[in-house]
Design a protein around this nucleic acid. Sequence first.
DNA 1: TTCCAGATTGGAATCGCTTCCAACAGGGAG
DNA 2: CTCCCTGTTGGAAGCGATTCCAATCTGGAA
Lengths: 372, 372
Amino acid sequence: MSRVLNGGVNVRESTRRRVLEVIERLGYQPSHLAAALSRGTSRTVAILVPHLTRPATVERLAGALTVLDEQGYDTIVYNVDTPEQRDHHLTALTARHRADGVIVVSIRLAKPRIAAFRRAGVPIVTVDATAAGVPQTVIDDVAGGRLATAHLLGLGHRRIAFVGDAPRGPRRELGFTSSRSRLQGYRRELAEAGIEFDPQLVRQGSHSALVAAELAGELLRLPDPPTAIFAASDTQAMGVLSAAEQHGFPVPDRLSVVGFDDIESSALLNLSTVHQPLAQSGAEGARRLCGLLNGAKAKPLRQQLPLRMMQRTSSAGPAAAGSGGGGGTWPLPAGSGRRAHDRSRFSSHAWRRAADVMLPRRNEWCIEGALL
Amino acid sequence: MSRVLNGGVNVRESTRRRVLEVIERLGYQPSHLAAALSRGTSRTVAILVPHLTRPATVERLAGALTVLDEQGYDTIVYNVDTPEQRDHHLTALTARHRADGVIVVSIRLAKPRIAAFRRAGVPIVTVDATAAGVPQTVIDDVAGGRLATAHLLGLGHRRIAFVGDAPRGPRRELGFTSSRSRLQGYRRELAEAGIEFDPQLVRQGSHSALVAAELAGELLRLPDPPTAIFAASDTQAMGVLSAAEQHGFPVPDRLSVVGFDDIESSALLNLSTVHQPLAQSGAEGARRLCGLLNGAKAKPLRQQLPLRMMQRTSSAGPAAAGSGGGGGTWPLPAGSGRRAHDRSRFSSHAWRRAADVMLPRRNEWCIEGALL
DNA sequence: TTCCAGATTGGAATCGCTTCCAACAGGGAG
DNA sequence: CTCCCTGTTGGAAGCGATTCCAATCTGGAA
């Protein structure tokens, strides 16, 4: 009897017990499928993520899974590395009874796609991607780019390079826009500081530490190399650090490096970076989808999460600029700027005491920015 | 008409066209649920992974997803951090029509659990976990421990420590056994080399770089500190590297470090480590499950994947042992042992040229071991 | 032209639930 | 004592495919 298994309202206690006993005796196992079909909903959510193995993606996914699990949803994960896979799965998800709702992470949705979901009546939300008329949880990448750049300017840097990833071929990629937006923020902040934009200092390639190292190498071999590099992601920042080591540019003494995302290993490597709440973004996306599934309306369509600058030891004032980073415009807490540390061994940047690293501490400043 | 949509045998071309036309006109969308119910299978697989955010876990998951996706299965992912979550999901998966099959990664399955799955007729395979009577894709952790230890012995080390993770409270954890097995391999190899086991050199704590750094710190503060540390995972090896830096033990000059797993960042950090095919393990598990779902029998119940020693620059002969590691018993390729590199700056270990790092190269030796 | 095997097609039965509705049992009010 | 309202329970009607099976078409052979 359905009433016993589910929200047993109006069932006499004796009956309940009797039914349960029979169920036990017959070894009855309810069929999830049959229940779902007759109910009209499977309590299943699909999540589409690009490049699952990237640390930032995983953190988002984990955040979403936690919430969906709590809410009793099963989560089907689609990992997508190519536009073909993306299209294939998005098309399939439009079908009825495939998933109660869909979360799309970091992937740009074309207008017709969005329309198809609306037509099919399948609720959809995005995380880290904008899409017209779709509830979305995002960050302000432009502001993030400014935050990083402002940080370096504040330390006294004037020759700041950018290493990012951008689609090369036309439409061959999944349409990530974050790197471009961060570059935009970088340019705006430079402009406001009255520094002329130097195209030579901007290098873009595919998203990998390897390629980033290559690009950083080009920068460091310039006749007048930059004193700081802002990388569009922590992964790329690691490539930059690698190149710095390779080319004999001690960090942060001859080169400051700032990343973006604040993935776990960044703390271990003492990488200064723009922190974005990755797990939280996934969790928020999931929470909003659950809201939609419960019939709620997505109140503000766009939910923007805060960013903050995590200053660690991969960034400091430029050697040539004298001590202290006081020349900049960014308001740093007293005591920031060039950090007192053993400069004779440039590796002292990396592998500081891990216990100090994992949580905010005295020599790690969090600068709030873009608070919604 | 079902025949048109599916394997349309015996359908006249004109009829097919007519049906398709009507489908188009009515905007008909087949119901996945109804199809699944009547078919009796949903073409859905569940995968249970512990600690999703760990790099090794993600690689396994990604490997499995790739195969399952190719085979047309939807994959429900359950991330499990506690025994309660594990039990909850495993119980749920025993129900009918929940998932066609289940992949369990790294989690120990109790006997009654296995029996329950068998009784329910739900095929199950494990990856990186042994379970009586269950098809499993594993590695030989003991052999891996020996491989790492033999590598260090071969370099001339005699005082080799171990840092690993082990359950502290009774049964509070998910039952990972790899660290213990690797420790066992370490002990056996030492014994065979005629080196007495020193309990002081074995430290165990929870699985995190932070804790590992703590433990390594204790080791390095010993009156007679080890010249090499074997960490039970790359994550922990990173903690060890951090501690080495912190305590002024240049790597590899005063301390060699070897990890286990060969996750992506290990290559970037030039960490010597025991490579295990992570993505492949997930893929193989998935492949075997698909086999079971197609009615095949799991031929050899246990499938063992090969390990190999990746020698990078975090390990070299001990300073006190003179040049060359010829004193050991492990057959190293000519040219191995202490590597020629700038010893005046101990950071030269980290951040070598990334392009060199990602693929096997002249100064990265792969030592095959435990080939099934 | 008639008949029959094989190709097509329409329709009923099924997959197990959820849900709605009608039937029924009690018990207090009239 | 009868009536009516509420609390319970049994049973039928979907949910929307798949899958048989029987009915109908075909076309070629007789």
